[in-house]
Amino acid sequence: MARNILEIKELYKSFSKGKYGKDDETYNLLSNLNISIPENTISALIGGNATGKTTLFNILSGFLKEDSGNIYFHNSKTTNLSEIPPYKREHLGIGRLFQDNHIFPTLTVLENLIIADKNVLKGNPFEAIFNVKRVKESEKVLTQKATETIAHLFGKSHELLSKLNDKASSLSFGQKRLIGLIRLFMSDYKLVLLDEPTAGINPALNDFISEIIKQMVLENGMTVFLIEHNMNFVRKTAHNCFFLDNGKINMQGTPSKVLGNEFVQKNYLGV
């Protein structure tokens, strides 16, 4: 078995009860949650509505702060993520696909992809004014990378290739979702967090999305940690499955083991 790339230990997170509830009235959403994600695998997190799956991802990305617990990210060295500001977690090699589409509506499809680049200006806006040649060259390379990635994933005649200069707001929900997925190939990620990758996408495309995710692992050396409600998709795609219930991981193993479990079937699948 491969080593773990991510280890979540004794994680707790509570929220105050209702919006106007008293501050001391809290409930534990995640309590004593432990997960280890093996490197170069696809792991699926399943669980009922509002059990805290997205909240866990938001804690991993740094948008929410855990109450207590530790999150270790093992790359070339081990990092305790709690001490890292959100944007720097991306620099460590952690990518994210949001459950609700977070694309940039006023940017074009192409801009939505090449904005993933962080190297060209290195944070110096004056380079844009005085080093036009270097910027132009970098833009050319990025544009090529974006079109090649789309062509590689979806084929040379995919509709997105003819929409590169359209505003992203003009895309359908499913197309926006694809942009989010393609963008993850623009950087060298080690771990990607995919929050319901098939949600809102034409079910006919599910197999296709499944293939793209497998490609992330096989061709691009990423580790995938995803949240899914579509159990057929989980069976087809994931190596490991984690069942989140009552704030902790109640059951884990291969998808067929977890989904075949009597407790999971009764309490989640409603069989």
């Binding site: 977070h102 962080k118 200006l121």
Partner: peptide
């Protein structure tokens, strides 16, 4: 690219953070 980043910030700051 700096202008693009500013537009991105205007559109969706959460996404910008997620992109590092």
């Amino acid at each position: 690219p700096f202008g693009r980043d500013l537009k991105g910030l205007r559109d969706d700051s959460i996404s910008m953070i997620a992109l590092g």
